[in-house]
C-alpha cells in the first residue's frame, strides 16, 4: 500500500509540475506582448543595423571622387588573413616631384573575418566597416573587390 501511495503521489506531483509549466506556456501563447521574430527579408527597408556593425570593408569617397588612402600598407600588414593587397604606383606631380599613391586596393571579401584590425590600423581613417551583410554571389571571383574607384585621387591635405 505504501508503494502504491508513493507512486500515485509521484504521478500527481509530476502532473502538477507539468501543468505549472504548461500554464506559463499558455500565458505566453495568449499574451504575446510584442512579436520578437523579425520577418526578414520582408523588413529589409526598415532594418537598421548598429553603426558599428561589421559587414564589409569599404573606402568612402567624396563627391569629387577623392579618398583618404595614402597607400601606406599599414592595413595590409595588420590583416591576419592576407585579405588586403595594395598595389602602389608613383605619381608625378606637375612640379616634377614623385609621390607614392595607390594604384589598386584589392579586398578579398571571401577571406575577411571582420576582425576590424585593418580599420584600427589605418592612420588616416581611409577605410571603414559598412553595414551591408548580404554578400552571396554566384561566382567566387565577384567577392574580390577593388575599393578605390576608377579615376579617384587622394584627398588634399591627407598625408
Amino acid at each position: 500500500m505504501g508503494f502504491l501511495g508513493e507512486y500515485i503521489r509521484t504521478v500527481y506531483k509530476s502532473v502538477a509540475s507539468l501543468l505549472k509549466g504548461m500554464k506559463m506556456t499558455g500565458y505566453y501563447f495568449t499574451h504575446h506582448k510584442e512579436i520578437i521574430t523579425q520577418e526578414y527579408p520582408d523588413n529589409r527597408d526598415t532594418l537598421i543595423l548598429p553603426e558599428r556593425f561589421r559587414g564589409e570593408v569599404v573606402m568612402p569617397h567624396t563627391e569629387s571622387n577623392e579618398h583618404r588612402c595614402t597607400g601606406c600598407t599599414a592595413c595590409e600588414l595588420a590583416c591576419p588573413n592576407g585579405t588586403i593587397k595594395i598595389i602602389t604606383k608613383f605619381e608625378v606631380s606637375p612640379e616634377g616631384k614623385k609621390k607614392k599613391a595607390i594604384d589598386t586596393f584589392i579586398y578579398h571579401l571571401e577571406l575577411c573575418t571582420m576582425c576590424n584590425l585593418c580599420i584600427v590600423a589605418c592612420p588616416t581613417d581611409a577605410i571603414k566597416m559598412a553595414q551591408s551583410f548580404e554578400h552571396s554571389v554566384y561566382k567566387r571571383a565577384d567577392l574580390t573587390k577593388v575599393l578605390n574607384k576608377p579615376g579617384s585621387k587622394l584627398m588634399e591635405g591627407v598625408e
Binding site: 558599428r52 571582420m114 576590424n116
Partner: peptide
C-alpha cells in the same frame, strides 16, 4: 552588436584595453 560590432566573434579585447 551595438558596442563591439559583432554578435558572436567580437574581437573586442585588445592588448591594453578594449577596441572601442
Amino acid at each position: 552588436e551595438e558596442t563591439c560590432g559583432a554578435r558572436l566573434t567580437m574581437n573586442y579585447m585588445v592588448p591594453g584595453g578594449v577596441m572601442a
